[in-house]
Amino acid sequence: MAHDHHDNEHHIIPLGTYFKVLGALLVLTVLTVAASRFDFGSFNTIINIGIASIKASLVLAIFMHLKYDDRLYLVLILTSVFFLIVMYFFSVLDLFTRISQGPIL
């Protein structure tokens, strides 16, 4: 029972890092709004998803402590993202390679 719950082996992320990450997230939010003001055609979607993914990585790495945590959690989350891509890939493969391209959706 005497064993301490959390000892010093836990990495404490310095306060400044948290605020820098928030700053970066806010800058990226402004950037994604600014990018949507211009018409890059279908690239708009890619740019927006790209910026969102950078923001998501920052939240995962610092706010959710993944960067300093056991690799196990990173593998877990990447597994679910991988299966999401599988779901998307095969749905698109099916829908866009059908011979009759009528309004079937």
Binding site: T32, V33, S36, N44, T45, N48, I49, I51, A52, K55, A56, V59, L60, F63, M64
Partner: peptide, 19 residues
């Protein structure tokens, strides 16, 4: 709570910005 934030990070551009 961070996951709720993560989902909104994707929802915002998808719904509000991609037109």
């Amino acid at each position: 709570w961070h996951l709720v934030d993560l989902i909104w990070i994707y929802l915002f551009p998808l719904l509000y910005l991609i037109g």
